[in-house]
Design a protein around this nucleic acid. Sequence first.
DNA 1: GTCTATAGAGGGATAGAC
DNA 2: GTCTATCCCTCTATAGAC
Lengths: 233, 233
Amino acid sequence: MKTVLNPTKERILSAAELLFAETGIATTSLRRITGRARVNLAAVNYHFGSKDGLIDAVYERRLGPVTDEWLANIEALENRYGESPAPVEEIVEAFVLPVARLASDEVRGGRIFMRLLAQGYSEARHYFEKLFSSQYQHVLDRYRQALRQDLPHVPSDTLCWRLQFLLGAMTQGLSGGELLRLIEGKADPKDTERAVRELIPFLVAGLRAEPPPESEERSYGLSTVSADPGEIA
Amino acid sequence: MKTVLNPTKERILSAAELLFAETGIATTSLRRITGRARVNLAAVNYHFGSKDGLIDAVYERRLGPVTDEWLANIEALENRYGESPAPVEEIVEAFVLPVARLASDEVRGGRIFMRLLAQGYSEARHYFEKLFSSQYQHVLDRYRQALRQDLPHVPSDTLCWRLQFLLGAMTQGLSGGELLRLIEGKADPKDTERAVRELIPFLVAGLRAEPPPESEERSYGLSTVSADPGEIA
DNA sequence: GTCTATAGAGGGATAGAC
DNA sequence: GTCTATCCCTCTATAGAC
């Protein structure tokens, strides 16, 4: 267990993760983090160099293992099925489960981190751009190609859109979000096992759906691309 | 047009919206906002009372019309179909279109605001809680009940989960997100008309999907609810 | 590796002239 | 309604003792 190796570092990381998720990154000061972690203020700069260094470390600790699992899972599928297409269900599972495992593992940060993840990219943009360009994009592409093989009736760019929908639904669904509570259901947002069980058929059906007709048989009357709104609009 | 009535207020709102979406709320200072709006620093406090007041106004300006449309649309459906169930396609359209109209309307803030919205609740939690408890929850509930009628094979709590997935997919899909760019597709994230055309069948198929079996015929081995992680974990 | 003390920058808000 | 000047606060980061 890494947790044992350097208690101070881990304490800072866990406190930071929790506070970031609860109140946002920018509004969380190093003073509050070190206070909660019961560690000296200067320790952050000693161990992580700066607040930015700490932010990177918070993300790295959780997302590193996930991308590793993603890669391992897709490779296992590729090896198992060879040239023949793997079924969509299994591909979706291979993608969702690593994230779900993270979400359900309270010891490893669990849903706290998922909330941080769902919170968006604007606060940690530089980290996400680094991550995407290095590994994420490549992994996602292999999932997309695997899906294509079992979905010959779905055009390539429709599949791109659907992948984006998938990412949105998955992140929202596994973050144990505030949203669910407000839909007034008996559903327990903390039940990750249940969330996955619901999520998989929803996503599979969405991916399998008949693609929309090419023709403009039906227009929603939404401007496609309008002029630059300008400085003030 | 409200835009004409008070130029200064509108300039501040638009500048704030843009900067909030680009770099987050907390990191955007009133100095940067007023600088971009070419308005005096003190104007914010004069017109909005405080930075919090400004944040509320930014959300209110966009979300007010959306919730109004949501309500009008669901009422139109209820009146048109009476006791017999409205088809899922129309219900989903009635829900997605108001948001899509906002996203596609550059003059009204468009995708800039959608990005702000997708960014999550943590930065503007107090505003969302106010909104949810007053109108949003009630409106969402009527959509849920309409869906139930046309989806008798879907249990009530499964539907709750699916609504959450729907919200995640919609928000992500209409935010013109950075994500799509990275999936290496020819899809243009700015094409809202296209986004909606893709989104509707995806969501409808997901909502219509056969619900997962109740029994534990298949477990993902994810802990359901574990102990409180404690202060530090 | 841990702590105290502080430098140095930037933030929100306001008083008061115009 | 708009502007300048300024108060007072909190923040990150670091220097230097232990």
